[in-house]
Design a protein around this nucleic acid. Structure first.
Lengths: 218, 218
DNA sequence: TAGATTGTTAATCGATTAACAATC
DNA sequence: TAGATTGTTAATCGATTAACAATC
C-alpha cells in the first residue's frame, strides 16, 4: 500500500479509470469488498498486475481472505485522478462536438468546470447552451487571463485549429485538449493531448481485423 | 524497412496517428522529404525512436542525407491503420454526442462508414441527421445481422449502456466503442474500447499539475 | 488449523535509448 | 571526400509476470 506522494507507473495510472468504473458498478450493487482475483477476471487483466496496481494507490491495502474495500479503492482513485480538486477550462468551438462536450455531465463529476464556450460564428454567440455562455472569440484572451484559466479545449475544424491554438497559448493556457485531427505546433512548455476520434476508431477496427484473422487460423 | 506482414510494436502503432497528422501538414506545405531528426524535434520524440518507428512501417526506408519521402510515409501509415479498407459501423444514441459523431467527417476519410444511428426516443426516430437515418432500436438487431456489421458505437447515457451493449452483442457485433463512462460486461470474444472523455481530461489536468509542481521546484 | 488472499522479491519481457557502422 | 543521415546491434530501463512468503 501507498502512503501518498510516491509516483505511480504511467501504465497503472492509465488503468485507473477502468478500475474506477468497475468499482462504482460493484458499489451500486451493494458489494463492499472485492478480491484482486475477481477484479482481474472481470477486467481481463493479470491478477498480480491488479494487486500491484492497487498496492500503488490504496492507502489501507487489502486484507487476506476478504480482499479490498470497494469504497476505499474508489476514494483512493478519485484522489489520484484529482477528482476532488476543482479545475476550470475553456472550450473553443460550439459546433456539434463542442455542444456534446458542453452537454456532457461527466466533467463536473470529476471536478472540471467548463466556464464558457467561444465561437466565431455570430449566430451562436450570445446563446446559452447547457447552462454555458457562448462568447465571441475576441473575448477569449481577456477571460482566460482574468480567471487564470490553464486548460483549453479545441473543438473547431482542422483548418482553424492552429490559429485557435496560437490564441490559447498567447492567452496563457498551459494545457490543450485537441479534438481537431491536425498536428499543432506549440511552445515547449505547453502540454498538448490529441484526442483523435477517427484514429481511435481506426485502431479498434484494426484490432478487430487482427482478432478475426487469428480466429480463422485456430 | 518493413516488407509488410511483420508485426508492429503496440506503442509504435499508437504513435502512427501523430506521425500521420504531422506528415500531412508537411505535405500541405509542399515539403517532399523529411529527416527523422526533424520529425523528432517537432513531435518531441527521441530521434532513434522515430527512426525505429519509421523502419517498422516504411516499405522503401529512408535515404542517407535526404531522409524519408513524406508521401511514401503517409501511404505506409494509411496502409497500416487500414485507411484503405472500408468498414461499417452502427451508432446507438442520437443525443448530443451521437450527433457529433454523425457530423464528424473524419470517419469517412479513414474508411469507416456509420451506416445508421439508433435511438429509443421517438421524437428523433425517422429523422435524417447529417445524411444518416435514425432508426428505432427495435430494428438494430435485424440490420446488423443482414448487413454483417461488426462494429458498434455506444453513445447513450451510462444508465442504458449495458442494456445497449447486450443488444449489440446479441446482434453479432464483435467490437464496441463505448463512450458511456461505465464498465461494460461482455463475452470474452467481444472487443471493447472505452473512450472515457472525462477520464482523459482528468489525466491531462493531472499531468498539468505535475508539470506545474515540477516547474516550481526548479 | 487450513485455505484464501495479500504483498514482496526475482525473472522475464518489451520498449527505449545509446553507440556505432553503413550509405549516399 | 566529408558530413549528414539511415539502420543495426548492444545496453538500459520500465512494466509485466512468476514464484513464494506473510497474514488473517
Amino acid at each position: 500500500m501507498n502512503a501518498g506522494g510516491v509516483s505511480i507507473p504511467k501504465q497503472t495510472f492509465h488503468r485507473l479509470p477502468g478500475y474506477y468504473n468497475y468499482l462504482k458498478l460493484l458499489r451500486s450493487e451493494g458489494i463492499e469488498t472485492v478480491s484482486s482475483t475477481t477484479i482481474a477476471k472481470d477486467l481481463r487483466l493479470g491478477e498480480v498486475q491488479v494487486r500491484k496496481d492497487l498496492a500503488c494507490i490504496s492507502k489501507t491495502g487489502g486484507r487476506p481472505r476478504t480482499g479490498f474495500s470497494v469504497a476505499e479503492l474508489i476514494d483512493s482513485i478519485e484522489y489520484q485522478l484529482g477528482y476532488n480538486r476543482m479545475d476550470e477550462a475553456v472550450l473553443v468551438g460550439a459546433g456539434n462536438l463542442g455542444r456534446a462536450l458542453l452537454s456532457y455531465s461527466g466533467f463536473e463529476e470529476i471536478g472540471i468546470n467548463i466556464v464558457a464556450a467561444f465561437d466565431r460564428d455570430e449566430s451562436v454567440v450570445g446563446q446559452t447552451l447547457f447552462g454555458k455562455q457562448v462568447l465571441p472569440i475576441s473575448k477569449l484572451s481577456d477571460l482566460c487571463q482574468r480567471m487564470h484559466i490553464l486548460i483549453g479545449i479545441i473543438a473547431v475544424p482542422g483548418s482553424q485549429a492552429q490559429q485557435v491554438c496560437d490564441l490559447l497559448v498567447s492567452a496563457g493556457i498551459a494545457a490543450i485538449w485537441n479534438f481537431a485531427p491536425v498536428h499543432l505546433t506549440v511552445p515547449d512548455d505547453v502540454l498538448i493531448k490529441n484526442e483523435n476520434l477517427a484514429a481511435s476508431l481506426a485502431i479498434l477496427s484494426q484490432n478487430l481485423s487482427e482478432q478475426l484473422a487469428k480466429g480463422n487460423l485456430l
